[in-house]
Every structure is written in C-alpha cells, then in structure tokens.
Design a protein around this nucleic acid. Structure first.
Lengths: 198, 198
DNA sequence: CCTACCGATCGGTAGG
DNA sequence: CCTACCGATCGGTAGG
C-alpha cells in the first residue's frame, strides 16, 4: 500500500466516522444501523467494514477523542496562577470551546457513551470522574479562599455546572448571533455570578 | 371481567410500566428488548402483550404522564403574585419536586422521548417548548423589573436552567444527606445568585 | 400467562 | 467497494 493510498484510506475512514457521529446523534447509537450509515455514504453496508472494524469502534473513537480534548483543555487551565473563580471561568470557557469545535461528536460523547462495552465503558467513566473531580477541586479551592459560598453542596455545584455545559450541543445553533467565545463568557457569568443583578 | 379483575390488571400493568422505566433508563429505549423486560418480571415476552399494546405505548405513558406533572406544577407557580426572582425560584423547586417523586420516569422523559413516533413526538416537543417558554417569560419579566441582568442572552439562560434541572435524575442519590426540598433550594440559589459570595 | 411461531432487521463475514 | 449470505435477535400475533 502506497503512502497516498494510506492517506486516502484515512480520509475515507474519517468520513465514515463523521457521518456516523451525525447518525448516532440523531437516532441514538442503538437505533442507528450500519445500513443507515452505508446509505448516507452511498455504499453497501458490507463495504463499511473495509474502513472500520466494528460499529463500536466508531463510538469508541468518538468518545475517547473528545475525552482527550477535554483533558488537554483542563490541563492548560490548571497551570494558570489565578484565583479560583477565574480558574473556574476559564475551565468553563475551555470546555465550551472544545465542544464548539465539534458539536456533533460532543453530543455523542455525552449521550451515547453508555453503549460502550467493557472494559471501555469503565475506562471512559474513570476519565470522566477524574475530569469532574478536578473541577470540584477548583470549586473547593474557591470555597477555602472565600471566593465562593460555603453554604452550597459541592457535588450539587459541580454536577449542575456539568449539566449546563454538557447539554449545550443539544440547543446551541452555531449560526446564531452568539459566538462560542461569548457563549462561554455568558455561561461562566451565569454560573459564577447568577442571574440576579449584582 | 369483574371489578377486582380490573383492579388486578391495572396494578399489573403499572408493574410492567415501572419495570420498563427502569430498563429504559439503564439500557436506553432502543437497546432494551421486550424479552429483557419479561425476564425482569419473571414471565415470557409474549405475555407482556396481555397488559400493554406495544413497547412504544409504555414510552408514551411515561413521557406524557411526566409532562402533565410538570405542567401542573408550573401552573400553580404562575398563579402566585410574587416577584419574578421568587417565581423562578418556586418554578425550579416545583420542577425538582416533580422529578424527585419519580427519578426513573424523569430520566426516561428526558433521554428517551426522541424514540416516540409521529405524531406523538411532535405533540411531546410542543408541550416541552411551551413549558420552556413559560420559564423564559418569567426570566424576561425579571429582566423588565430590573431583578435580573439585562446582559444575558435569554435563550442561553433558560436552556442552562433546564439542563441543570433535567440532568438531576442522572446523579442525584435519593438516600443522600440532601433531601429534595434542600436540593431544589440550593439549585435555585446557585442559578439565581451564582456560586460567588454576595 | 403459555407455546409456537412470523417476517423483518441486525452486525458482521467470505470471497472476490 | 460489491454480491451473497450467516446466525442472532427483534417486536409482535395466533390460539389456547
């Protein structure tokens, strides 16, 4: 196989994965059939398997690639020497920006990961709990320094934060007047400062 | 069929629906088979159909019963003559209390409604957009009276609110130290006032 | 509530 | 990338 064949294969594989992401988002992983996917690509179902090993391999690559992006973004934020409220703000903005780069894959990451088989599901959930706990640490730091209220339950705070972030791909219209940067800003403002006028 | 038979049937049908809710929540509607459900109930798959008409009928009853509960709760709140911030707070608490009464059905309502067929899906989405818009009206009232910031995008605000509320069944442990009333209080506080110390 | 069964569809393979 | 096909499983029905 020549280099250009390898590149062609890679790009075709990428096409398959991207179309699959759209399909999985729209119908859900379990209800999306490989025949549906093939039809979207204009080929026969059996032909998919010269590009990918299995249906689940596609789901795995979508979920774990997104997880890696989120992790990278948070690591950058953790390096910063800024107050906890600023760190939380930057973490939120980073998370939103990673999502905005691929809203379809983000929706699959959030809604369909439960269809991963073991041991992948376990690995995925470990990555997620680690990510959540690192946000929780930022919130706890903010409570310790007096920036954040000490009256709020930390688990509730971090899960509420996460819920807000993770549903964004379900309603955000990338063609709308509000761009991802402004979206991140406003989301961070609402969660940190609330709706009420200061 | 005697009256007591009717009552027995009704209660058995309820058992089927409740078990189905657990199964749909755990595996997702599409991945949950009627044979799985039958096994959980200790009967054969074909026997399910003496209690229910179809798999989707179960999903419909779960989704629309929850929708009716949410609607009822919001109507009570809308009658109140209180400031918008108070109304929003009470709307949040009401929503949480409806969910807390049946966390399993709430999770199905949120995650599996997309598997409804037409025309039920359309009806469901209309109910949901109506509910969301009524919350949006409360937020807009609050902006008009000066209780809420006028800098925030209203769609973002209401969708963030909804995301936070609707993911609660995914992480809330009803045996935890925080009870539904306190949960509603804290969630309302976080969304209205933010994490930051006043 | 059961046995026996239906047609449709599923993910995936063999072989080219 | 295709034709031809596999065993497994799906929601649901007939008849008792």
């Amino acid at each position: 196989m020549s280099m250009s064949d390898a590149i062609a294969n890679l790009s075709r594989k990428e096409q398959v994965i991207r179309k699959a992401a759209e399909l999985f988002k729209d119908k859900g992983y379990a209800a999306a059939s490989m025949r549906d996917l093939a039809q979207l690509l204009g080929i026969e179902a059996a032909s998919l398997y010269s590009h990918i090993k299995s249906k689940e391999e596609i789901l795995r690559s979508l979920c774990f690639d997104m997880a890696a992006e989120f992790r990278k973004s948070l690591e950058e934020v953790e390096k910063q020497h800024v107050p906890a409220s600023e760190k939380l703000r930057n973490g939120i903005i980073g998370h939103i920006q990673v999502m905005a780069k691929d809203l379809t894959a983000s929706a699959v990451f959030m809604n369909e990961h439960r269809h991963l088989s073991e041991p992948y599901l376990r690995d995925f959930l470990l990555l997620r709990i680690n990510y959540i706990n690192r946000f929780k640490t930022i919130i706890e730091d903010g409570v310790r320094t007096g920036e954040f209220k000490n009256t709020i339950d930390k688990k509730l705070a971090v899960m509420t934060l996460f819920s807000s972030l993770n549903w964004m791909p379900m309603w955000y219209d990338p063609d709308s007047s509000i761009d991802p940067q402004a979206l991140g800003d406003q989301l961070a403002d609402m969660l940190v400062n609330g709706l009420k006028k200061a």
